[in-house]
């Protein structure tokens, strides 16, 4: 599904990713952990194509096509979803409107017909119930005045509606209380399938109690320094990162 090879990237002239290699096969969930400033969020942004994150070397292939040549919206339409660590507020743009526009853009890309507002609303309602979100959220501005937890739930709701092939969730667990965390995890788990891959970027092993990863990677100074099974996360929880990074 996703093959990252020797990826180097800079942000504002500063080297952040320094030869990162990662292979996420279809159907798998990989967790990426690491200390602050190790490049976790940069990786997420580079995959989504955020302007200002410059790839200086390496390659990323997604479903056997070169991801890096695609515009951000084309990546999204091709099935890459980024769950933002800090979802932006967009006052004046309706939540449901954005969602519908995104949904239809993807359908159009696949050569499918657009769905009408009524049909779409039905679909969203089902997903909202799963996320235990109030319908009033739909008519509000995108993330406008949402609490931290509400924003994260909204991200997962968008993911459930868009059904991406690859979801990159950047610290979706941060700022969530335990109940919200369970709901978010449930949302993510519903989407797990053999055709879909996920990358969970996280600081804590807590999320991994609810979403069991196939692999755990430790990112430090811009590259993967250790990979292992889900037990690696527990070990990190117990020992911190120092024992790995001090090498």
């Amino acid at each position: 599904m996703l093959k990252i090879n020797n990826l180097h990237a800079t942000v504002a002239g500063k080297k952040v990713l320094d030869g990162l290699t990662l292979d996420v096969p279809a159907g798998q969930v990989h967790a990426i952990m690491g200390p602050n400033g190790s490049g976790k969020s940069t990786l997420a942004y580079v995959l989504a194509g955020r302007p200002g994150y410059e790839v200086t070397a390496g390659s990323v292939s997604f479903k056997d096509q070169d991801l890096l040549t695609l515009a951000p919206e084309a990546r999204a339409q091709a099935g890459v979803f980024l769950g933002f660590q800090y979802p932006v507020e967009i006052p004046g743009v309706n939540n449901v409107y954005l969602l519908k526009a995104a949904f239809n853009a993807a359908r159009k890309h696949r050569g499918e017909s657009e769905v009408d507002a009524f049909e779409f609303l039905e679909l969203v309602r089902i997903k909202m119930r799963l996320m235990q979100m109030d319908e009033a959220f739909l008519s509000r501005g995108v993330n406008e005045g949402f609490s931290g937890g509400e924003k994260k739930r909204n991200e997962i709701l968008q993911m459930l509606v868009l059904e991406p092939a690859l979801a990159v969730l950047d610290e979706t667990d941060s700022g969530l209380d335990i109940d919200a965390l369970k709901i978010v995890a449930q949302g993510v788990n519903t989407l797990r399938s053999p055709e879909r891959s996920m990358i969970l970027v996280t600081h804590y092993q807590r999320l991994l109690d609810y979403i069991k990863p196939d692999q755990v990677h430790v990112l430090a100074r811009g590259k993967i320094i250790r990979s292992g099974g889900s037990e690696l996360a527990l070990e990190l929880e117990a020992r911190g990162y120092d024992w790995l990074t001090q090498v």
Partner: peptide, 27 residues
Amino acid sequence: NNMLFYMLSRGIPEVTAQALLKWAFIA
């Protein structure tokens, strides 16, 4: 730019995203 990128990352074409933001501006 942040708002624009958020929308692009959801697959919304740039022209539409810009139009949406302009519309929101006077909403």
